[in-house]
Structure formats: structure tokens, C-alpha cells
Amino acid sequence: MRNLTDEEYLLPGNAACPGCAAVMAMRIGLKVLGPRTILVIPACCMSVVQGHCPKTPSKVPIFNTAFAASAATASGIRAALEMKGIMDVNIVCWAGDGGTADIGIQSLSGAAERGDDLIYVCYDNEAYMNTGTQRSGSTPEGARTTTTITGKSEGKKDVPGIMIAHRIPYVATACTSYPLDFANKLRRAISMRGTRYIHLLSPCPPGWRYPTEKTVEVGKLAVESGAWILYEWAGGRCRLTGPSSGLAERSKRRPLEEYLRIQGRFAQADPSKIEGMKRRIDEEWERILALCKG
């Protein structure tokens, strides 16, 4: 925490909902990234957080772009800066899960395949929160959204896995409740070149239906129950980080029910549904542990 500056790059009085984990993480993220950073933001909650023109809470440049286009826009920015000989700037896409897992995955995949020099942070609040909580590819099984009122029947799309398959230099997962873990991962990402990807689980009080003060606790329960696994993948090696490194054994994890019950979006998940969710989580752990063994 001593490494984090008191300088605020995301100024108070922005238009985020109270208790928003996404701005919590952006505030910390910008402290790590510093002033020589350009943010590229597609349609997402962050487009609203910025408030109305001619005001903005951001002290670093933000370029707002179309929903599907953040990675490609960032590629163009990088190309222009290279032509102008400016080499010391972080170009960072900061996109929601819809703009990453769904509509934006083509341009993200294109940039990653080309190895374009950018950092991509997906803050994942597991639904289209900006438009009022509709199901996305990143919504987990069982979660109620306004377009899955009986709970989503499919599982969550594994975007970090997709990014690992692109063989880019760095892929990590993070959670807003572990800001220092996130900060460390951003620092590692900054130290590399090429396409770097961080998938940041970002609890959302109105969308996940919990009281605003519980944002940190909900995120911690996601990790401690094993529902969200913290890891980083670099140079062909995967390792668990933060609390997840002690949770490889199932018995060490907190019961999934504790994570589910604190949120309203899983209220209607019955025991058989929860068993299915647990099976998926176990499979995910097996996959990540296998990746860690190499």
C-alpha cells in the first residue's frame, strides 16, 4: 500500500453508483499506471461514470469509442504514437464484460493475435449493468438478470482462458476486493510489451443485489469460496495468487452458499442448481491446477 500514491487520477464526484467496485479498481489502477496513460473506454458503466461533457473525473486522457471497438482503437493509438516516436505511454482498454466477452471479443482477439502493445482490463460485473442488468456471456450460471429472470442456465464464458489460447505475454485474473494483488498484476503487465490482459471480477451492488457496503465482502467471498480463482499466466506458466494459492484443496474453501446467499441474484437457485454450480467450479479448479502444473 505504501507504493500507492495519494495522488488521485480519478477525481471524486463522478457518476458511479455508491459502492461501485469498478471505480474502486479504476482509482487504484490509475495510481499504478500513472499520468502517462491513455484509457480507451467502450460503451460500459465507465461511459456513464465519466459524467457529462465538458466535465470528466479523469486526469489521464480517456478516449471513448464504440462498444465493439476498444482494442482496435487502442491499436490505432499505439500505431500513431509509434510513428510519432512516443514510446513511454501505457495504452489501456478499460472495458466491461459485455464489451469484452461478447461484442468486443473480435477486436480484442485481433489485437491479441497481432500482439499489439496494449493492456486490456476487463472489469467483469457479470452482466450488462449499464443498461440495467441483462445477461452477458460472462454472467455465471444461476444468476438472475432482467433477461434471465429464472436464472441463467449456461455457464460463464472463460475469457482469460481464451486469452491464454492467444499465447500473449500476460494473462491474469483479479478481484476488486484484493486491490494490492490487482496492483501487482498491473505492475507486471506494465513491465512487459505486447498484448496483456487482466480479467477483474467487479461486484455490483444494484446488479448483484446486495447492500452497497458489502462490495468488498462479496468479492472476498467469491474468491474464498473458490467461485473466482486468482491466477496469473506468463511465459507459459500459470500460478495461483493471493488467497487462491491456499485454496487448491476444496476443503479449504468456504461453502459456496455463503457467497450466493449474500446476493439477491442467486436467491432462487435451489440445492440441485447449486450442486451443478459447485461441479462447474470444481472443474474450473481442475483446469487451472492442471495449467499450474504445466
Binding site: 477525481l11 471524486p12 464526484g13 465519466q50 459524467g51 461533457c53 466535465k55 470528466t56 473525473p57 479523469s58
Partner: peptide, 10 residues
């Protein structure tokens, strides 16, 4: 184009 200020959201 917008400039950084506190209270961008009011």
C-alpha cells in the same frame, strides 16, 4: 472534449 474536475457527476 472534457477537462478533469471534481464533481463531474455533480
Amino acid at each position: 472534449v472534457s477537462k478533469a474536475t471534481e464533481g463531474a457527476g455533480g
